[in-house]
Design a protein around this nucleic acid. Structure first.
Lengths: 346, 346
DNA sequence: GCTAAAAGGTAAAACGTTTAACGTTTGAGC
DNA sequence: GCTCAAACGTTAAACGTTTTACCTTTTAGC
């Protein structure tokens, strides 16, 4: 008597009085060259349903040498930005019968290699990187390419190699934020950037400068503060803002993300400033909490869930060998969400 | 010529001039009944290292009928509370050679069944539930028990069944928060609870009542607001607080979690109240952002990373059949973190 | 020197699939 | 009535491990 053992093709075959091969063919519905009569087909399917057959993924993967899992390497799980992205990845991949193995660096950048090792040991069919920093670019990525393991980046295009990515238009996002502040009359607009290692920093800077230029506002490096720490929490925004406050503070501020904005606001309030009267603030990302900050945060929305879904679909396409070059580089539109923190919102 | 195919025991065996069996034995280091000479042992290990052997987990699982992955079902990925827990789970399980398959309900409670189905199809060796709600308790959990798939709960003990769990002491946490507010002189202390389906709600309520009683403060049901929506975002705190404000608002407030607190603070500020002068607020969880709220949030800390690690270790022990009854029910200590939002902090 | 057991190792089967190669039956064409 | 395909299936091997059962060579005991 089989006790809580799983049902196999063998069981189906016996009960339907056909061979295991036939059962396999029916289950996999090789519609192309099938050569199975409708009668046996139905029979097998009925039996399969009745006994609740679930293919054994280990046997499948062993035999076909194809894995249905892929790795996801993310910078920091606690960050709602990555949470939303992972959520998108998960939804899209489950829908296609894949499952993501998620590993987080927790900001120990440099651990990428170890993470990738784990994924490789688990026979991940591909790897998705979100918010990671590739100092070791050559090494790891090259090796993956060589071994035919596709890679997709989220929010972090690697310029050197032609690796598929999905990102938001960072230049435009920063442009929108800056433009908005300029239109509200600000001329002394601060910019708090993330560390250099994050490619988005340079792009946001570019968008900021472009807006100033377009509206004839003088660019001045002293209005730009950059965080050097890689971790992306409110503390970064806080300390950067403090540096501004010790000098000659701006009247408006673009921050690298909503968490930075929270920290920056905190610093400003501590020094007796009022938001938005003394300092208008714009964030980036539009995480769920942003609408409830005091005051509610004006911010540039990134479609994080969407990015996760697109990236997962791209990676799976790549794994299955159907990813087309022209669909490999996706840039999504950011959107300015106006709330009270800039002085203009409802 | 093998092109980017993985190294197998066969390869090692050939190069070391031993049989596959021997290679396998050495690699798995069956120290007990091994019967392999140190010489061959070293030889095999050397070869294995040289060729970079990585066992094929599919073959291993197929043969041993043991899976090294387990499912994690979480209520909401975007929530930093769950993010931290997942992070803990991941660290602990990677360390023990297991990998978690994470799936999120995104607050579609009732989807538990579908999630569990996916995990079962992937042959998860166990399942970890965090923040999920078991209306369907009987069905799913029973089935899992029957099929010998261990389950562990995080932050959500199911009273009916003796299922291992790890949780923070919710009664004590709420007690600490309430006590703190009482000691600061408050008598009209509001309580915003999560929905009934979340067991923590009832426990926090109990701790709140216990503190009032102990300090001789009259308990009054009108100071208790409960959210009915399951999603746990700032909006819940916001609307609950609004209901207080339309009546006769309390002078102090205990909230269900830090996100609720953010929403509640927003609502109060919108109505012209100042925190903490007009309303002292205490949160729960101590997520990273809480220290940067305006004002910084006094809150009850939960050791989320720790909870994730402990739960993962418990589940893995259960999978391996070594989980002892006396280590199956873990309650961790909460800790009051005093900041400015209650009027007492630094 | 003989036997028994220990030591060191191997062959082969099994796990549940997929797939290449091969049978058998049926029916059509003439 | 024969031949040839097509139609419908099947057999058996393979994927990379682990494990059971077995085999050979030492070594120990006397």
């Amino acid at each position: 008597m089989r006790k809580s053992m799983s049902i196999t093709l063998q069981d189906i075959a016996e009960q339907a009085h056909v061979s295991v091969t036939t059962a396999s063919k029916v289950i996999n519905d090789k519609a192309s060259e099938i050569r199975i009569s409708p009668k046996t087909r139905d029979l097998v399917l009925t039996v399969a349903k009745r006994v609740g057959y679930k293919p054994n993924p280990f046997a499948q993967s062993l035999r076909t040498k194809k894995s249905r899992s892929f790795g996801v390497v993310v910078a920091e799980m606690r960050n709602p930005y990555f949470g939303a992205i992972i959520s998108g990845i998960e939804q899209a991949s489950i829908a296609r019968g894949y499952y993501p193995l998620i590993s987080s660096l927790e900001n120990n950048f440099g651990e990428e290699k170890a993470c990738v090792e784990v994924h490789r040991a688990n026979r991940a069919a591909g790897i998705l990187f979100a918010g990671t920093v590739f100092r070791l670019e050559e090494g790891i990525l090259h090796q993956l390419a060589e071994d035919n393991i596709p890679v997709v980046f989220i929010g972090n295009k690697v310029e050197a190699l032609r690796i598929p990515y999905v990102d938001v238009d960072n230049v435009k996002g920063a442009f929108l934020a800056t433009e908005h502040l300029i239109k509200l009359g600000h001329r002394r607009i601060g910019l708090i950037l993330g560390p250099d290692e994050i490619p988005a920093s340079a792009k946001r800077w570019k968008g900021y400068k472009r807006a100033l230029e377009e509206y004839g506002v003088q660019y001045d490096k002293r209005w730009v503060e950059q965080e050097t720490q890689l971790r992306s929490d409110p503390g970064s925004g806080y300390s950067a803002m403090m540096r501004f406050l010790e000098r000659d503070p701006p009247t408006a501020l673009c921050t690298f993300n909503d968490q930075y904005a929270l920290g920056a606001i905190r610093a400003a309030v501590e020094k007796g400033l009022t938001i938005p009267q003394d300092l208008a603030v714009v964030g980036f990302d539009n995480i769920a909490a942003a609408a409830y900050y005091s005051p509610p945060l004006t911010t540039v929305e990134q479609p994080m869930l969407e990015m996760g879904k697109i990236a997962a679909n791209m990676l799976i396409d790549a794994i299955e060998g159907t990813l087309k070059e022209e669909r490999s580089f996706v840039i999504l539109e950011p959107k300015l969400i106006i709330r009270k923190s800039c002085g203009a919102g409802p």
